[in-house]
């Protein structure tokens, strides 16, 4: 495994973070140096009974000094804020075509699921030069996905999805750590992220691929759990058609309009009463306790495949 490094070139984002870091180190050394130098100079020059003359500063000059350094610090700090904020805003959301890898954290391990259904424990394989998005949730307490080589981190929460995305540029095996204290074996909740070139990654997915991809597994569940009984084409119940749902806007009965993303699909399955689709009765039962986090991932993958066939095909081509 590659060692932890003080300077990282594994992704463009990491380089940006390091650059900001060293800028701040520079500024800090200057300021701390200035303070130390002044203390030493004054300490020597104005030590007790030293011959140096002690002239009182005129009041006018005093005010100028004060105003001077208030505005200088304020200006400097806002400059740093602006620089840092620009860095953050440029990498806010993952590109639409990002490769989604699902992560389920639990005390004290990481489960990963590749788009084609490969399951991994405490390990993530991902291609470089491709935007990769980790779609993460937790089964119990709050954990935190920390990839130091990529200079990124995101808490992983129970009951909702959080996202982390990166576009690595250097292949290799790097540390993966849990950064949020999560109980007894927190420090053992570690693993590795394997970044590979795209051909390597495709080869890996082919050799490891399970017989059914995630979406296919989801389809089986969709039938065995009885979803199709209501949502299927010849259902007796009046339930919405789930084709072309993911990524599209949904009109809810209380007037809100929401976009059907992972979080919405998840809520629809676990807390159907929360968002009722306009024009439908709240007939859908909650599947809380019936489906596991992994099952939800599969169901969502299936629902996504119903409306994002094009995107999936693109990914297929890329491999």
């Amino acid at each position: 495994m590659n060692p932890f490094r003080f300077v990282s070139d594994v992704s463009h984002e990491a380089i940006v973070v390091d650059r900001l870091f060293f800028l701040l180190v520079g500024i800090s050394v200057l300021i701390a140096g200035l303070v130390t130098a002044l203390v030493v100079i004054f300490g020597v020059r104005y030590r007790k009974d030293s011959p140096a003359p002690r002239r009182a500063l005129p009041q006018m000059l005093k005010n100028e000094v004060e105003i001077g350094w208030i505005s200088a610090t304020a200006f400097l700090f806002f400059f740093i804020f602006w620089w840092a904020a620009a860095g953050e805003l440029s990498a806010l959301t993952a590109p639409k075509n990002a490769l989604d890898i699902h992560i389920v954290a639990k005390q004290w391990m990481w489960h990963a699921q590749q788009p084609n259904g490969i399951r991994e424990i405490n390990e993530i394989h991902a291609p470089i030069n491709t935007p990769v998005r980790l779609v993460m949730t937790s089964q119990d307490v709050i954990h935190s996905m920390f990839l130091p080589a990529l200079r990124i981190k995101q808490d992983v929460l129970p009951g909702r999805y959080t996202y982390l995305w990166f576009n690595a540029q250097k292949a290799g095996t790097y540390h993966l750590l849990c950064a949020e204290f999560c109980g007894t074996e927190h420090s053992r909740m570690t693993g590795r992220i394997v970044l590979m070139t795209q051909p390597e990654y495709s080869r890996w997915t082919e050799t490891e691929a399970p017989t059914h991809g995630l979406a296919a597994q989801g389809e089986t569940l969709f039938r065995s759990l009885g979803c199709s009984g209501c949502h299927g084409p010849n259902a007796s119940v009046h339930a919405p058609d789930l084709d072309h749902l993911y990524g599209h806007r949904v009109q809810l009965s209380d007037g809100r309009v929401v976009t059907a993303d992972e979080a919405y699909l998840r809520d629809s399955i676990l807390q159907p009463r929360r968002d009722i689709v306009a024009g439908y009765k709240p007939l859908m039962p909650s599947f809380r306790g019936i489906v596991s986090e992994d099952d939800i991932v599969r169901l969502i993958a299936y629902l996504k495949s119903l409306s994002t066939k094009n995107v999936l095909n693109q990914q297929g081509e890329r491999q």
Partner: peptide
């Protein structure tokens, strides 16, 4: 206080 560094 700088978000990108704090994230790391």
């Amino acid at each position: 206080a700088s978000v990108p560094i704090d994230i790391h």
